[in-house]
Amino acid sequence: MPKSMDRTRCGAVCALATLALSAALTSAVAAPAPPESPRIPFAERFHSTGHGGIARAGRTTVTRTAHLDTDDAPRTVGSSSARLRLPAGSRVRYARLYWGGDLRPGGPRAARNTGQVLLAGPRGRYEEVRADGPIGRRSTARTDVYQASADVTALVRRGGPGTYTVARAATGRRAARAGSWGGWVLVAAYENPREPLRRLTLWDGFEALGGKRRALAVELPGLRIPAHSRGRAGVVAYRGTPGTHGKISARAGRITPVALHGAADPANEGPQSMRPNSGRQAPGRATYHNALGFDSDVFDLTPALRSGGDRLAFRFTTRKAGYLLGALFVQADLRR
């Protein structure tokens, strides 16, 4: 499951974005905004059993000094691109787009647009995407963090693997040093007869860690994972201040919980920030390779699966200011 962090060029997006943008902005039918909640308990969004896997692509939309601008379209704000990699011959079963960030530097104007973004696939045409469920939003004295999401299966199934661009995700308009940050993650479950037989599951919600709440448990039932399986787990998380660290552990069956580690997370210090290496800043702005408050990472789940079991239990902890957990996805092999 590659991390999709390589630099990509805008390609067809640059050529078609301006032409398609006006249509995307004017074609939307007025609809009531989804409800907001400071806490959304984690629940299963998707699951399947078959030959395939889960891939993800994501990017920050803000650097320390400016919003990114991949498409060069003057009417978009915070456009950034990332490549979704799928094995040859794959078919997308389910895809969901998550986006979020800190609204406080942008004030009420930014908060009005949390429930919609523009999404362009490899063919380069923007389509408006609206949140199809409650929006998580939690305000403190320092931050105003939100997460929205939407089912984009049809769009990603048409587009297939390649570069996806997200624009107009609501964040503050000021520089990130004043507290503005944001980003997006596209999670895609696919089927492919050449891949191992796997259990695939996606859960999401909006849960805060920090203050008096130092731990969060998320239990995934009904997986029936055989002993000595291999697997991976991915997260989408948001944190109000840089430097927030935590730990993630998991266990299947009755074994002692195992701390999870990833290639970009050797110290297990929580999810690592996604590097904004696809997208251009305004002229004269310095490049800043840190997503500041928006995070996504993938962890090796294999050590936690050695005894197998029907349930997979995750435990998220924090020792500092805390973070907000938005999504959890798992793929686990069913055959050794």
Rank of each mutant, 00 (worst) to 15 (best):
T287C: 12
Y288E: 15
R224P: 01
A215V: 01
Y288D: 15
A250L: 03
D300V: 03
R306S: 10
V235S: 03
P283T: 04
A263C: 05
R232F: 05
P276G: 14
R280Q: 13
G210C: 03
T256Q: 12
L216Y: 10
S273M: 11
A215W: 02
G279N: 04
L260P: 12
S296R: 08
G253M: 03
V236T: 08
R213P: 08
A291C: 06
G262M: 07
R214D: 03
T302W: 04
L301D: 09
P276N: 14
R280N: 14
L216F: 04
V236W: 06
P257G: 07
E219Q: 05
A252M: 05
G293Q: 12
N290K: 01
A264F: 11
P276Q: 13
T287L: 14
R280S: 14
H289P: 11
D300N: 11
G284H: 10
K247A: 07
D204R: 04
A208C: 00
E219T: 11
K212T: 11
V235T: 12
G270M: 10
D297N: 08
A259D: 12
P226H: 07
N268F: 02
A263L: 09
V236G: 12
N277Q: 14
G211D: 00
H261N: 10
A252N: 01
R224W: 06
R311K: 04
I255T: 14
A263E: 15
A208D: 08
K247E: 14
H261C: 02
F299N: 06
R232V: 02
L301I: 03
P226T: 02
P242L: 02
V298K: 05
G262I: 07
P257K: 01
A217N: 13
H245E: 12
G284E: 13
R230Q: 07
S249K: 01
P242D: 02
G284P: 07
A263H: 12
G262H: 05
P283Q: 11
A215K: 05
T256F: 02
G234K: 00
M274H: 12
A282T: 08
N268C: 14
P257E: 08
V298G: 05
G279V: 10
A263N: 12
E207A: 11
G240D: 06
A267L: 15
H261Q: 09
P271F: 12
G243A: 04
A267S: 14
V235G: 04
G293S: 10
S278F: 07
I248D: 08
R213N: 09
E269K: 09
P221K: 01
D265K: 04
G308V: 00
A217I: 09
L223Q: 11
A263I: 13
R224A: 13
D265Q: 14
V236D: 07
A304E: 06
A259S: 08
G279L: 06
D295F: 01
P303N: 10
A259Y: 09
S296A: 15
